[in-house]
Design a protein around this nucleic acid. Structure first.
Length: 263
DNA sequence: GGAGATGTTTCAAG
DNA sequence: GCTTGAAACATCTC
């Protein structure tokens, strides 16, 4: 589920009430810990305080007094939440951090998520992240250069590339292209300067709008977004009032408005 | 029962 | 060496 704004929402679930002094760590060793020293994790965290909760795109890092860092990626179906103790972990709860009164839970029904652990000074990879899409460092030049480089890939697939568009996932890519009136199968290098301008503007707008709604309290974006109409076959385009179409483009289910987005 | 799902990684072909 | 697309991953829901 989680894209930029959903990740921000989940980050806040664990951030609520910071700092948290960790008293116990419960782990169910499953695929989400691939490549991670779970033994070291369970030995290190008890006694430390969770002091920082950071998100960047779809990545999260939780810092423990700058001595240890937990990396969390939610994959397709991961969730983070807090509950009161006592808490009996459910089937797909693979990590539970307990404080005196609360439990911080990582749940992932599909096991596509990932948890990493870095004892030491800094979370690995956190220093080489691509620019945040809402920052000035993500600009037209960066967008244009990337589209030019991926010249034959469908623009839908390009928007899903995290190395340039951190946080954009399937629904956000569809929303951006729909608003920019660009067909999702258009090759990256084929976009005109005018289209690139619209694409740039809508990337910023969708990121900001999603964070203001979903990112705050999981509330839906406004009715006039594609968001509320894209999930099932038979939807109607909120702008043209004509039928929406769903097909696989760039390897993913893609919803668009043929009346508005022409190949 | 079969298909599809808001993601990433890996592999191989061009 | 880079780009691109497909398959694999695991489980749940429609």
């Amino acid at each position: 589920m989680p894209e930029l704004a959903e990740v921000e929402y989940y980050r806040k679930q664990w951030a609520e009430g910071l700092p948290h002094r960790i008293r116990a760590v419960k782990i169910i060793p499953r695929r989400v810990f691939r490549g991670t020293d779970t033994e070291l994790l369970t030995q290190t965290l008890p006694g430390l305080r969770l002091t920082e909760a950071l998100a960047h795109g779809k990545q999260m890092t939780f810092g423990f007094q700058k001595k240890a860092w937990l990396g969390v990626h939610l994959g397709m179906a991961g969730r983070l939440f807090q509950v009161d103790l006592p808490y009996a972990p459910e089937k797909h709860d693979y990590l539970v951090l307990e404080t005196t009164r609360r439990a911080l839970v990582f749940r992932d029904t599909r096991l596509f998520g990932r948890i990493t652990f870095n004892p030491g000074a800094a979370p690995s990879g956190w220093d080489t992240l691509p620019p945040d899409l809402l920052s000035g460092a993500f600009d037209r030049a960066a967008l244009d250069a990337f589209l030019q480089r991926r010249k034959n890939a469908p623009v839908k697939a390009i928007l899903l590339m995290q190395e340039r568009f951190p946080g954009i996932g399937n629904w956000m890519a569809d929303e951006i292209l729909w608003r920019a009136a660009i067909h999702p199968a258009r090759p990256g290098a084929s976009l005109t300067p005018r289209e690139r301008g619209r694409l740039f503007k809508e990337i910023k707008a969708v990121c900001a709008g999603a964070l203001e709604t979903i990112g705050v309290d999981w509330r839906d974006p406004p009715e006039d977004w594609l968001f509320l109409h894209r999930w099932k076959d038979g939807g109607t385009c909120p702008r043209t009032k004509k039928p929406l179409v769903r097909e696989t483009i760039g390897g993913r289910t893609t919803c668009f408005s043929p009346a508005r987005q022409v190949l």
